[in-house]
Design a protein around this nucleic acid. Structure first.
Length: 271
DNA sequence: ATGCGGACCTGTTAGC
DNA sequence: TGCTAACAGGTCCGCA
């Protein structure tokens, strides 16, 4: 479900409900997510006041005093704000209750998501330590991608989806960005010019920014923290459009599996 | 160091 | 209608 725009939409949707309020308790119904929800979380979080929510890559960081709750939505996770007392469904794994009477509920059918707890600087956490730059940061540039890609033979699509290179480019937006930049997804990363990497960075930034503006992409059942669907799906040019006409040249779009993920592109427009 | 495939888990949809 | 297989927005890990 969530790529970076969906995660950012979620963060923005729930932060106003949580910032400044105090955690009353943590109810864990299913501890077995991607990693077990640490018992230290339920022991140490109650009583703390939420300072705010940050995001790093697709992790939502909930600052609580000297500690931080690190949350990832995986493929199918969501976070919703609700009144206390709502009955829990089969996949409602964790509730955070607040003194405001509100509940933050983590739901995740596939359980690829995670909820972790750290009392150190989140940036030093093993999961965050080796992450590349944020795609919307100035440190992310055509020059940067060009330098990092020299002598690399993997497909450029896999290259830009590597979180050590740049974070937040998921399967949908990888296809979309490469289409907008006119680059074939299978092309070896090391065989792309600086000028074309500059186009690719511009494309990634445009696509992600536009998707955040639209409130994310709803393919199936994504909703932001406010429960509203995202509308960026209407602006997807290639993703999930196999055999449909290219919006630029009308030739049929192709689907190909690259790195075990569905990839969509135009054979004619992308080289 | 790089690149690839497998693993985690459940739900939905397409096809016979 | 019912069964089965393929597929799904992520990403860590271990092996060659």
């Amino acid at each position: 479900m969530p790529e970076l725009p969906e995660v950012e939409t979620t963060r923005r949707g729930i932060e106003p409900w949580l910032a400044g309020s105090r955690v009353q308790g943590v109810r864990v119904r299913q501890r077995r997510l991607r990693w077990p929800v640490p018992r230290r979380l339920d022991r140490e979080l109650p009583g703390r006041r939420i300072a705010g929510l940050d995001r790093r890559a697709k992790y939502i960081l909930m600052k609580a005093g000297s500690g931080t709750v690190i949350m990832h939505l995986g493929m199918s996770g969501s976070l919703r704000i609700m009144a206390d007392g709502q009955p829990a469904g089969a996949h409602d794994h964790v509730d955070f209750t607040f003194d405001s009477g509100r509940v933050l509920r983590f739901t995740d059918p596939r359980r690829f998501g995670s909820i972790l707890w750290t009392t150190r600087s989140p940036a030093t956490h093993p999961l965050l330590k080796h992450l590349g730059p944020e795609p919307l940061d100035i440190a992310f540039s055509g020059e940067y991608l060009y330098q990092r890609s020299r002598d690399r033979r993997l497909a450029v699509k896999n290259f830009i989806m590597d979180s050590r290179i740049v974070v937040g480019v998921g399967n949908i937006y990888a296809s979309e960005s490469l289409f907008r930049a006119g680059i074939h997804p299978s092309r070896a990363a090391g065989r792309i010019s600086l000028a074309r990497y500059e186009q690719l960075v511009a494309a990634i930034q445009e696509v992600l920014a536009a998707a955040i503006r639209a409130g994310g992409t709803t393919l199936r059942d994504f909703t932001g923290g406010d429960g509203k669907p995202g509308y960026f799906v209407h602006e997807l040019a290639v993703y999930d459009r196999a055999d449909k006409p290219c919006l630029a040249c009308a030739s049929p779009l192709r689907r190909k599996v690259i790195g075990q993920r569905s990839t969509y592109y135009c054979q004619h427009c992308q080289r």
